[in-house]
Design a protein around this nucleic acid. Sequence first.
DNA 1: GCAAGGTC
Length: 613
Amino acid sequence: MRVLCVAEKPSIAKAISQILSGGQFAATNTRNKYIKNYEFDYPQTQSFFTVTAVSGHLTAHDFYETHRKWHACDAFDLFDAPVETKVPPDNKDIENNLMTQARRAQVLMIWTDCDREGEHIGMEIAKVCRKANATIRIKRARFSAIIAQQIHNAAQHPVELDKRQADAVEARIMLDLKVGAAFTRLQTLILQGKIPQIADEKNVVSYGPCQFPTLGFVVQRYSLVKNFVPESFWYIYLSLTRPSPSQGTAEETKFNWKRNHLFDEVVVANLYDRMGNSLAVVTKVTNKTTKKWKPLPLTTVELQKAGSRLLKLAPKKVLDVAEKLYQQGFVSYPRTETDEFDKDFDHMGLIAKQTVDPSWGAFATSLQQGGYNSPRKGKNNDKAHPPIHPTAHAGNLAGDEKRVYEYITRRYLACCSKDAEGWQTTVDVVCGGEEFSATGVCLVVKERNYLNVYIYDKWTGHTVPDFQEGEEFQPTLCEIRQGETSRPNYLTEADLVTLMDKNGIGTDATIAQHIQTIIDRDYVIERMEGATKYLVPSTLGIGLIEGYNQIGLVKNVSKPQMRRETERKMVQVCEGTVSKNDMLIEGLNQYKEMFVIVRREFQRVTSVCDFFC
DNA sequence: GCAAGGTC
């Protein structure tokens, strides 16, 4: 029996071939320079296997000629316009390879990633193969990691493709295309010539169900900063300065007021007066060990946040660099939501590969000699890819590649280490009826553990001198002090990634692209302040969001709710409680309703843009 | 000239 296996990407085709054939396969090139066909015997099922791949989605979607030109129809008509699904020219070689191979095979086994998009890509592959071979039997291999035992199991016990998941994706594709195109044409055609920024025909004022909520977050923070009014507060400052027993130098211990601070000066003054000239009494001294937790296994979103915050690289850039490292075989697949390792994961094998490194090799060795501790388990598992980790030692990297590889490796070794341990002392005192406390973390951390390799975390603290319970002292300072609430900062890229992730805007693989899009469209400008990059909306970006806000729809195009509903609907289609068609019609109706109102009230957007631009 | 989602 001949079995044709098709993976979502070339790297997976290669990996499963290696496992299933035990390394004994013949590889032939295809007309696509990235894709190879691997052939070998698989005696376990008395089959001859051909393993190949696609490169993500096979088909593209667009309107037919009648609706493709911007002036060919009214923008509203796009909601009900038919959509053409076809294999674009770039993918023709891939399609031809699939068809040639399908003609020779009796069984097609789909090996795409086990997520919604993978199921849809599987359907695309199945359609192409059935076109070439109407009687081919279609099966689906289920696996959650590239581990030998799992891959063999998937090959020997295939299941069926899940049509529901593919349907959910199909509905999302249609919805996004229609909504995006309709609103983009509406915005662009009205604003063109009205405001100077988009006088040029090339300047599209794009709308997308992900890019607009993303812009919304940036503008929301901007408004918060702009409208900020500092507020005064008052608090009681209490401290004791006395020689430290060890060094003999004077040392000030600050005690924090339990009430923190109050916004009413009179109330603070009254409390202060009541204290009079009282002595402070130590009511309690607590000494306990405390831990600083090692980091969680690394996901794409976390890598992007760390890249932006620690390495000063844009989220898109970090992902591009990680992708390159992946292609060179230095790190695992960099697009993953998973922050827990499989229980059978071979950590010792990976740690051994890092022992030769001049910077962290000694640390890796220490893990082999008893320092190893199982990584923490996070709450996310996409059942397709493990957390990002180094797969080989890379000694000859330079520049950003070196820095990203170093981060991934140090993070991984930190995950396999132990939490850092230290001492924490808390001293509670009462003075004239008011409570205060001082907390200190021992500067000499008991066990640094993971901190030795994860140089991005610092654990510094101040010590608290010895105090005895019941001890009384005259405070050196006891006075009312005034402070002010401080202005919030503009959003950083890391903040924005967090917000998008929390609100379900985009996926691990696309979040960085959406941020790039709103920068490319001139909705948002990057502004450096010191070493930190902030995202500030442009006048156009502010105008668009403020304009839509003035139209006053509850479910605004700039808010995350609409996208969240699309996500929820997709889950329902996957569960079988809603059909693909119902999801699409319901979604289209919602956006159509909004479109009518937005078009009627669009002069509000125009005038706000005018005002700002 | 439009989207978001895969991937190279």
